[in-house]
């Protein structure tokens, strides 16, 4: 699983992750409060221009934004149809700007930096006794570790269907996948506790 982070040394890469996240929150609030199509269009252009800092090709930018382009255009067309062209343009530029700015933060921040921010943000919750802040990083690591394993397990179950001349069906694929995966939970939990990974301090 490759992260959407892009290596680089731009101004945005060097800013602390917490600052970028706070700025993104402020920007999104501003974008929602202002209804001026001209302002929103320049914001979208600024977000697009920011992608030049990443030193990636236009094709690569398009590949990253494509999943959002479809839904943004669909909503904009829907708005044009029912609420008029002016509102449709406003919606289009606002949604495009939001996606572009968010994509900039994602591209310039490493997974590790994000986990640090989340762990620090979780400290007040730890003081309240709701969760342990360090569990966040541990859980994220566990998920990343087990996705490839579950995918290969899925392929094994599917091939077992073919070997027996059965068509793979959702229930007969998913049930063995869930049971075999969750059965390993006890062993993994024992391994984590044996290494003292979750013990205090």
């Amino acid at each position: 699983m490759r992260s959407l982070h892009i290596n680089g040394d731009s101004v945005l890469h060097r800013l602390p992750a917490a600052v970028k996240l706070a700025a993104l929150a402020v920007i999104s609030l501003v974008l929602f409060m202002i209804d001026n199509a001209g302002f929103l269009a320049s914001a979208a252009l600024a977000g697009l221009a920011g992608h030049a800092l990443l030193r990636i090709s236009a094709a690569e930018i398009w590949r990253r934004m494509r999943p959002f382009a479809l839904i943004v255009v669909a909503v904009a067309l829907f708005t044009v149809t029912f609420n008029g062209t002016a509102e449709g343009l406003t919606a289009f530029f606002r949604l495009a700007a939001l996606a572009l700015f968010a994509s900039l933060v994602t591209a310039t921040t490493t997974t590790g930096d994000f986990i640090d921010v989340i762990t620090r943000a979780a400290m007040p919750l730890e003081r309240l006794g709701i969760l342990k802040a360090r569990d966040v990083g541990l859980s994220i690591g566990l998920v990343i570790r087990f996705v490839p394993e579950i995918l290969s397990r899925y392929e094994v179950i599917r091939d077992a269907h073919y070997a027996r001349g059965l068509k793979p069906r959702p229930v007969s694929l998913i049930v063995p996948l869930i049971i075999t995966t969750l059965q390993s939970a006890d062993e993994i939990a024992a391994a984590i506790d044996a290494r003292g990974i979750r013990s205090q301090k």
């Binding site: 541990l138 859980s139 566990l142 998920v143 996705v147 869930i178 939970a185 979750r198």
Partner: peptide, 16 residues
């Protein structure tokens, strides 16, 4: 720890 592992494994299933 078992509950944490079960949640993480199921998250991995959702991703898969």
């Amino acid at each position: 720890t078992r509950d944490l592992v079960l949640s993480a494994l199921f998250a991995a299933i959702i991703v898969a």
